[in-house]
Design a protein around this nucleic acid. Structure first.
Length: 90
DNA sequence: GCTGAGCGG
């Protein structure tokens, strides 16, 4: 499983919209969009979890594409704090 | 109710 970073999204996008884009490349395990904890406004970026191959395809296929008129950024996400990553698949 | 760098409310 891989985490994918999505940036520069339109603020109007929600997790369902993101999921639909990524499901063209495989099964989406989870979608997480980041909101500002104080104002509750979307920060315009988020994360998607997919299987490794499908994640690669999705990154290749979706990076630099236009979502609602905005060119989004799609990349493999940085690993989070190691102690919080309890679910490893080794 | 807009805005626009960024890696997790």
């Amino acid at each position: 499983m891989k985490s994918i970073y999505i940036g520069n999204m339109p603020y109007s996008y929600d997790e369902e919209d993101v999921r639909e884009h990524f499901e063209q490349y495989g099964d989406v395990n989870s979608v997480k969009l980041i909101f500002d904890k104080e104002t509750q406004r979307p920060k315009g970026y988020g994360f998607v979890e997919m299987e490794d191959e499908e994640a690669g395809n999705a990154v290749e296929g979706l990076n630099g594409t236009q979502w609602g008129g905005r060119t989004i950024k799609v990349n493999e996400a940085n690993p989070r704090k190691p102690r919080f990553q309890v679910t490893r698949k080794w």
